[in-house]
C-alpha cells in the first residue's frame, strides 16, 4: 500500500517570485490565450491576401501618410503582412499593456491590499522584494513572447506565411523589450508611490506618447529631433522584421530598463509604507 499523500505537505509556493506568478496564474493564461488567438486569426486570413494583386492595388491607392503609419509596404508578402497586422502596433502594445497592468500592481498592489506588513515582517530587504517581483514580470512577459514566437514561426508556415527566423525573432525581441521596459516603469512608479492606479495611468500615457512620437515623426518633421527619446523608436519603429537586430538600440533600451529598476529599488527603500 502506498502511503497516503498528506494534504498537509509543505507548500510549493515558496519565493516571492513564485508567489507573484502563482497569484497571476489565471491572468497569464488569459493573456496568452488572447494573444495566441489573435495571431491564429491573423494567420488564417493571410492565404486570402497572399499574392492577391487586387489587394496590392488597393493599398497602393491609400494616401502615403496612411501607408507610412501602418507600415503598409509589401502588404501581400509574408513579412509585409506580419509587419502591418501584427507588429505595427497590436501585438507589441497588447504585450506592453499586460506588462504595465501587472508591473504596476506587483509592488504597489501589495501595499494597497495591505499584505505588505506580512511580507516585510520576514527577514527580506525591500530591495529583494523589488528584485524578486521584477523577476516574476520578466518570466511572465518572456513566456508570452515565446508563445508568440512559436505560434508565428511554427504555425505560420502552415498558412503559407513564411518569414525568416531572424526577422521574426528580432520583432518579437523588440516587442518583448518594449513591454518589459514599460512594465518595469509601472513597477517603479508603483514602488515609488504605493499607488497602483497612478502607476497604470502614468505609464500607459507614456507608452502611448512613445508610440505616437515615433510613428508620427515619419510624417511630422518637428517631431523628428525628439523621436530618439521614444523607446518605440529604438525597438519597433526601425522595422526589426525587415532589418533584423539592432544591438546598440536594444542595449540602450535594456539600460533604460535597468535604470527604471534601480529607481524602483531606491524609491521603495526610502519611504514609509502605507497602513
Amino acid at each position: 500500500m502506498t502511503p497516503p499523500v498528506s494534504p498537509l505537505n509543505e507548500s510549493r509556493v515558496r519565493s516571492i517570485t513564485a508567489r507573484a506568478l502563482r497569484e497571476q496564474r489565471s491572468g497569464l493564461v488569459g493573456w496568452a490565450s488572447g494573444l495566441v488567438l489573435f495571431c491564429l486569426v491573423m494567420l488564417a486570413v493571410y492565404p486570402t491576401i497572399h499574392g492577391n494583386a487586387s489587394f496590392s492595388d488597393l493599398i497602393n491607392a491609400y494616401p502615403e501618410p496612411l501607408r507610412k503609419i501602418f507600415q503598409l509596404e509589401d502588404y501581400t508578402t509574408g513579412a509585409g503582412y506580419l509587419r502591418t497586422e501584427v507588429f505595427s502596433f497590436v501585438l507589441p502594445l497588447l504585450l506592453t499593456l499586460f506588462a504595465v497592468l501587472w508591473g504596476s500592481d506587483l509592488v504597489a498592489g501589495e501595499e494597497e491590499r495591505r499584505t505588505v506588513d506580512l511580507l516585510l515582517a520576514t527577514p527580506v530587504s525591500r530591495g529583494r522584494v523589488v528584485r524578486d517581483k521584477w523577476l516574476a514580470l520578466l518570466v511572465g512577459v518572456t513566456a508570452l513572447a515565446v508563445a508568440m514566437e512559436i505560434v508565428l514561426g511554427v504555425i505560420g508556415p502552415l498558412f503559407e506565411l513564411h518569414v525568416g527566423w531572424v526577422g521574426l525573432s528580432a520583432a518579437i525581441v523588440g516587442s518583448w523589450l518594449f513591454a518589459l521596459a514599460f512594465g518595469t516603469l509601472g513597477l517603479a512608479v508603483g514602488a515609488a508611490t504605493g499607488r497602483r492606479g497612478l502607476a497604470r495611468g502614468v505609464t500607459t500615457s507614456l507608452v502611448l506618447a512613445s508610440y505616437l512620437v515615433a510613428t508620427l515623426a515619419t510624417l511630422v518633421s518637428w517631431l523628428r529631433p525628439v523621436r530618439n527619446l521614444s523607446l518605440w523608436q529604438h525597438t519597433m519603429a526601425i522595422d526589426p522584421l525587415g532589418t533584423g537586430f539592432h544591438a546598440e538600440r536594444l542595449a540602450l533600451v535594456a539600460v533604460v530598463t535597468g535604470l527604471f529598476l534601480l529607481w524602483a529599488t531606491w524609491a521603495y527603500d526610502r519611504r514609509d509604507l502605507a497602513t
Binding site: S11, V13, S15, R19, L119, A121
Partner: peptide, 8 residues
C-alpha cells in the same frame, strides 16, 4: 504560511 515560512 509555506511562503512566509520559506522567507523566514
Amino acid at each position: 504560511l509555506g511562503h512566509l515560512a520559506h522567507l523566514r
